[in-house]
Design a protein around this nucleic acid. Structure first.
Length: 575
DNA sequence: ACAGACCGCGCC
DNA sequence: AAAGGGCGCGGTCTGT
């Protein structure tokens, strides 16, 4: 059973309406207004564990959680709408669902454009909590959108797969809200020690800490006393030029090739300076409160379906600071990292039996190396990464040829995705997430024939291909993007399925979440904060979740997806 | 003074 | 040796 939950738009209190729906999204009873929607939801959740339909869980669920209720399942209309629009070949715009409302009411559907900030037409977004328009009941709009979404999901090429994607993505929203509430444990005292140790002390008002000042002096000395600003690439280029070395960038790998004595202190300066500015004291004052770091998570904020965050640099926490992430007394962190996720995903989704066999091993690269590279693991790795990222030359060239010969199905999947992208077409992940169309609008993309129906009139496809295709640098760049999209996006789907399953297992262990709670997630790594006595059960839950996700996405595959949980006091030790 | 482009690098 | 995907962020630089 599904139950639609829509909060009133007054922004005050938890008033709202419920609407029970049948499996096709149609009315099962009349709408029920409730002065306290969360209380009403709590009774239903306890009795039935329905699938809650939220207009926008990222906006709606915090109030539910804050009132002490956790729900097990939901369908997020906003996230689903973006997925469905993408499937139809629209650029979409994450978390914007104006088109849903427009379609429902027979209004012109805004095309390939983010919704204008505020138009005369309210969006579903607005209707969830916000202004209401005379004569339009938000719950009617949401119910109509939901029924429509179920119909559109059923009309996709593989409805069970797309349904799984919608469910996993919706669960991700619940996880994100709960993770933001919990926060990542962050010990200010340890953070301080690390910063002091690296920078030599704390200095106020933008002055350089001792260690940075000393490095700046070393740099100057190495360039014959000419003062250079190590923070300014232009200044660095000029200094090298005066020293007779002409460069066109100051990337670290470019600088290292010069062998100039100023390079070592310059790179050391940049490394420390970055930690100071991105994750130093200023960062902590803004982002860490009450011993918790609380970034804003944005599930599917990346086109590939990966999460993004806004503020706090949560997905770029430097490894050397992770020692500051320490479990509370009586608690542990259970850290789990999916090893070699993307190549394993490629092996599974391509159905390449030989590569899947290698991916049944602990170390996929070593297995490939043993089979095809005379045991040279580095070669196997650089070749496979090059294949997934679109590198064609350099040190990847020779291993690529070997891979193509030994693992043709896997390589073919990548190369087909690249060709489709180069010619302006659309590609899909394993569960059906669809890449955005080329930035220059064409009439309809050309979809890889293995991926389903073209999103628009097939008759347009040749003109679309000729406009977008060709051999330009832009076309090649898009080929690299679509080549990587299918793998990165499918890996994100596997990870989302893990999160969804794990969240339910953790709720079984500890319904309230105080004693076992997801506190961090980063593409292929997650951290659970748990009471020490639950540690072993959490490990078991993680292993189980990984198995369930693998079975859901790739039933019967020979590929092993490794998600090995480690119990530790600190994140740094969980590696 | 402010906005936006560019740069370089942290993470995956 | 040679250089490939996705991000967010803080710095500089340029244009207004």
């Amino acid at each position: 059973m599904a139950v639609l939950a829509v909060f009133d738009g007054d922004g005050d209190g938890n008033g709202g309406s419920l609407q029970r729906l049948d499996e096709r999204g149609h009315l099962a009873a009349g709408p029920e207004p409730h002065a306290d929607l969360v209380v009403a939801m709590g009774a239903i959740e306890a009795a039935q564990h329905p699938r809650w339909v939220f207009p926008d869980a990222m906006a709606d669920y915090p109030a539910v959680l804050h009132a002490g209720l956790r729900v097990r399942r939901c369908h997020d209309l906003a996230l689903s709408e973006t997925l469905l629009q993408g499937y139809d070949g629209h650029a979409g715009s994450p978390r914007r669902v104006a088109a849903a409302y427009a379609r429902l009411h027979g209004l012109p559907v805004p095309e390939d454009r983010p919704v204008p900030a505020r138009t005369s037409q309210p969006t579903l977004f607005d209707l969830g909590r916000g202004d209401t328009t005379a004569g339009v009941d938000p719950i009617d709009v949401a119910r109509g959108v939901y029924a429509e979404q179920l119909r559109r999901i059923a009309a996709t090429e593989r409805p069970p797969a797309f349904g799984l994607l919608v469910a996993a993505e919706s669960a991700s929203a619940l996880v994100a809200v709960e993770m933001s509430k919990a926060g990542l444990p962050w010990r200010a005292d340890i953070h301080d020690e690390i910063l002091q140790d690296l920078l030599g002390g704390r200095v106020m008002h933008g002055a350089r800490p001792p260690r940075l000042a000393a490095l700046a002096d070393e740099i100057t000395a190495a360039f014959q006393g000419i003062t250079i600003n190590p923070d300014s690439p232009a200044s660095v280029l000029a200094a090298f030029s005066r020293a007779g070395i002409v460069l066109d960038s100051t990337y670290s790998w470019v600088l290292r090739q010069t062998g100039h004595p100023g390079v070592a202190p310059l790179l050391a300066y940049r490394e420390l300076s970055r930690i100071l500015s991105a994750h130093g004291w200023t960062w902590r004052a803004e982002w860490v409160h009450g011993g918790r770091f609380r970034p804003e998570y944005i599930p599917a904020g990346v086109v590939s379906g990966r999460w993004a965050t806004r503020g706090g640099g949560a997905l770029q926490i430097p490894r050397r600071l992770r020692a500051a992430v320490v479990a509370d007394p009586g608690h542990v962190l259970v850290v789990a990292d999916a090893g070699q996720l993307e190549p394993r995903v490629l092996a599974a989704m391509s159905g390449d039996a030989a590569m899947a066999r290698a991916a049944g091993e602990e170390d996929l690269y070593a297995a490939l190396a043993a089979e095809a590279f005379g045991g040279d693991r580095a070669k196997a790795k650089v070749g496979l990464l090059g294949a997934m990222y679109g590198q064609t030359g350099g040190q990847a060239a020779a291993p690529l040829a070997t891979l193509r010969r030994r693992y043709p199905r896997a390589l073919d999947l990548l190369e087909r995705a690249a060709r489709t992208g180069e010619s302006g077409g659309l590609v899909r992940t394993h569960l059906g997430r669809t890449c955005p169309p080329p930035s220059t609008p064409t009439r309809g993309g050309v979809l890889d024939e293995s991926g389903g129906d073209p999103p628009e009139a097939p008759a347009d496809s040749t003109s679309g291909a000729s406009q977008q295709g060709g051999t330009g640098a832009r076309a090649r760049a898009r080929g690299r993007f679509t080549r990587n999209f299918v793998v990165q996006g499918t890996a994100a789907e596997w990870a989302a399925a893990v999160l969804a399953a794990l969240r339910l297992h953790l709720m079984d262990l500890d319904p309230g979440g105080a004693a076992a709670q997801l506190v961090f997630f980063q593409h292929d790594e997650l951290v659970v904060h748990a009471a020490r006595e639950l540690a072993d059960a959490v490990v078991e839950a993680i292993l189980q979740a990984a198995q369930e996700a693998s079975d859901l996405l790739f039933p019967g595959t020979a590929v092993r997806f490794l998600l090995r949980p480690v119990i530790a006091d600190s994140w740094a030790k969980g590696h």
